[in-house]
Computed example of a mutant assay.
Amino acid sequence: MNIQQTTSQQELVIEAGRTEKQYWQDLWRYRELFYFLAWRDILVRYKQTVIGIAWALIRPFLTMVVFTIVFGNLAKLPSEGAPYPILVFSAMLPWQFFANSLSECSNSLITNANLLSKVYFPRLVVPTSAVVVSFVDFMVSGMILLGLMAWYNFVPSWRILTLPLFIGVAFLASIGAGLWLASLNVQYRDFRYIVPFIVQFGLYISPVGFSSSIVPEEWRFIYSLNPMVGVIDGFRWAILGGESSLYLPGFLLSLGFVVLLFVSGIWYFRKMERAFADVI
């Protein structure tokens, strides 16, 4: 942080460090602000709600029920050897995490406009703290999956030990896409209307209610350009075990796209960061 003082009058100018090294060090220095923003958003989300944190359980559960009836009971789609509700919910977990992250990140800078215009801190703190809030919902929703496993007497295989790897990939995808939308929403306020459409459209083009194995073989590689295909397939491979298989070329393509999304998201966010306070 650089401090300048003029001779004509007492004036304190606070600005970000001029080097990349200082910026990334500032992220660590402002970790308490990161904790505060995340905890504040968690409290605000469930403040004065009748059933509180249960909202994180109701929405994915009802979506799972609808998808099970439509795709499992009516369309009779394959379930990879697992009960269809577990097939659906093993995809609902990463999808809800990703969708909530997009919604929270896209509005995070606008919501904290007063803070951004008054003091210096690394702006990356704001959208990344929003992703952590969405991860809390992810952990809460995980209780439904445990309940479904107990109900159907479903015991996961050793693959469940690889689940943290795919959670990490989901984090990269959420942060990367979230940084893009947070930056664009500051410049173009129309994106607050576009984000819900992206989330709704993405739900149906991602293999949430069905297995990606039903996609024709000649289209499956192209289908994996959707970064959430690799994340969802990875979750199912880790949770379902048994007949569930991971289409490796498609997963690697999705993983590469996730990494590109993450790196480009940070690059674009840093490029636009200096103008945030002025535009907001």
Rank of each mutant, 00 (worst) to 15 (best):
S212T: 08
M1G: 02
L165R: 07
E217F: 12
L43W: 14
T63D: 02
S129G: 06
L246M: 11
I14E: 02
L148W: 00
F36Y: 12
W95K: 00
K76T: 07
L145D: 02
P196I: 13
F154M: 01
V132D: 09
A38T: 09
R40F: 12
L109V: 14
L184D: 09
I69S: 01
I160C: 04
S183V: 10
A238K: 04
L37D: 01
Q200P: 09
V186R: 08
N73K: 11
L179C: 13
T6N: 04
F262N: 13
R59T: 14
L253G: 10
R29H: 13
R220Y: 15
P227T: 05
T63E: 03
F61N: 01
N73D: 06
W267D: 14
G17W: 01
Y223E: 11
V88W: 00
W180D: 07
S8V: 06
L260W: 11
V13G: 04
L102P: 06
D137P: 00
S103K: 09
W267P: 10
I144H: 01
G202A: 11
M272G: 09
S157D: 05
F276K: 06
P196D: 13
I266A: 08
S117R: 15
M272S: 14
T162V: 08
R59V: 12
N185V: 06
F138M: 06
F67E: 05
V136K: 03
F276S: 04
G168P: 04
L93V: 01
F201Y: 11
L172Y: 11
W28S: 12
M143D: 00
G242N: 15
V263R: 10
T111V: 15
